[in-house]
């Protein structure tokens, strides 16, 4: 199990979404993608769900943390 980190703070849409989606393409089955965010990525969620990922979204400091992993079959 590994953790892939992505700092999306200070980026304008759709940059955070594009970066997360391309990072997911290489994410292993047990890996976590942890992304630091300025805002909640509402448009990303349907794309995650469609590709079979689950996620948590939480406040952290003055930003947010989005954690994504593959849904267990």
């Amino acid at each position: 199990m590994a953790q892939v980190e992505l700092d999306n703070r200070g980026l304008m849409p759709p940059e955070p979404m594009v970066r997360i989606l391309s990072a997911l393409a290489t994410l292993g089955d047990d890996d976590d993608l942890v992304a630091l965010m300025d805002r909640e990525p509402m448009l990303l969620y349907p794309e995650l769900e469609r590709r079979g990922f689950v996620w948590t979204f939480a406040e952290a400091g003055d930003g947010y943390v989005l954690t994504i992993r593959k849904a267990s079959p």
């Binding site: 759709p14 979404m17 594009v18 989606l21 391309s22 448009l43």
Partner: peptide
């Protein structure tokens, strides 16, 4: 090249 990253991209919408 991002255009095909996701249907829901702001540009696509």
């Amino acid at each position: 090249s991002d255009s095909f990253a996701g249907v829901n991209l702001p540009r696509n919408l």
